[in-house]
Design a protein around this nucleic acid. Sequence first.
DNA 1: AAGGTAGACAACCGCCAATGT
DNA 2: CACATTGGCGGTTGTCTACCT
Length: 399
Amino acid sequence: MTPSSSNNNSGLLQQSEGRSPQELSCGGGGGGDVVEGSKGLKKGPWTAVEDQILMEYVRKHGEGNWNAVQRNSGLNRCGKSCRLRWANHLRPNLKKGAFSPDEERLILELHAKYGNKWARMASQLPGRTDNEIKNYWNTRVKRRQRQGLPLYPNDIKQSQQSHSHSRSLPTTTIQNPFQSTTNCTTPTFSFQIQSPIQAHHLHSLSPTPPSLSPLSSPHHPKSTTLTSLPLFDPSNPTTTSSFSSFTFHRPAPILGAPVRYKRYRDSVGFSPPVSPTPQRSTSILRANSMPDIASSHLTSTNSMPESAAFQFPRTLNPSLPPLPSSRTQFEYSESFLSSTGSVYSVKSELPSSQVSQTQSEVTIDTKVISAAAAAALSASQAHSSNGLLEDLLQEAEFI
DNA sequence: AAGGTAGACAACCGCCAATGT
DNA sequence: CACATTGGCGGTTGTCTACCT
């Protein structure tokens, strides 16, 4: 399975088939043609041209106000789709490719701590998105289920005894469909409880047990059965003790960013609120990165000299503090190269390429960036040209 | 060679909290 | 204060590729 295998994912056009227009969120469209909604908003895989438009828009206007992207850039995508594309694929400091062993280990630990809090986990995995982690985890769950193995290795099992979740205990016993005598006949349930400790991990560690969700959807209504599973078994001293010793691990506040009840979308490179009292009107200024709160976990990429970093000009928010941490800046430059390659070297109306895997460890200097920008400019001349490439060159010289 | 399966990935959806008007 | 908008989040689905039988 190569990381690039999914680049050619044109088949995604079939998504949302059969949904009524009311059910579609982005603009409410999407009736017959799954590529365009009723408002003409495109769906399905993003093309390189779309990526280019979105990148240029974000570069000029910053993140946030995603619905304005469609209004102002002509990009025929709903704001949500733009945001997702940016967050998961275009933002500059993304890592691509398989998780390293360190990252896998960290995911296990974080999941033991947080459960299916993908965004929170992503905040501690530099360059990784919640979607990646979620996909990884779901795949892992399926694999472990099939193999009859516990989700967590023993050391994590032991170490996470003190972890639990912020969700309250269910006060009433709701039948666990995976333990019911009527619903456990399918072979997929054979994994469910093989030992008390595994039962504990299945049911107490995850507020919405991810180990079950991939298999549950064909058989159970969404969320109700899963989220209502007993998180802790009072009869199990292990689970009760874990609850009593619960400590909530949350990333340290960043730049005074307020803690929102549900929003922990403060992963590295994700635009954080820059003000202690952020307002929506400032969201457009959030294109700057934030301190790498996860650097303590994975520090291997932190050694890039700041002088080598490229960063988008902060044209809209000159008052903001400098970009924190060398790693973030490095990844800007890293992704700059990748993105230019992605944007300009691909057939324009095919699904866009992903960030190059091979550049992740490349030491980047200004010459390289300039060369990349020049190459991008050259390559783009086959395209309809706009000011983007000139901007890129300018930025390359900016360093 | 054909079919099945697993893994990886992208993108969508609904929900909901925060914020703006 | 009510309503609308925005966007963050977790869950889910669908496709592709590689591998296995």
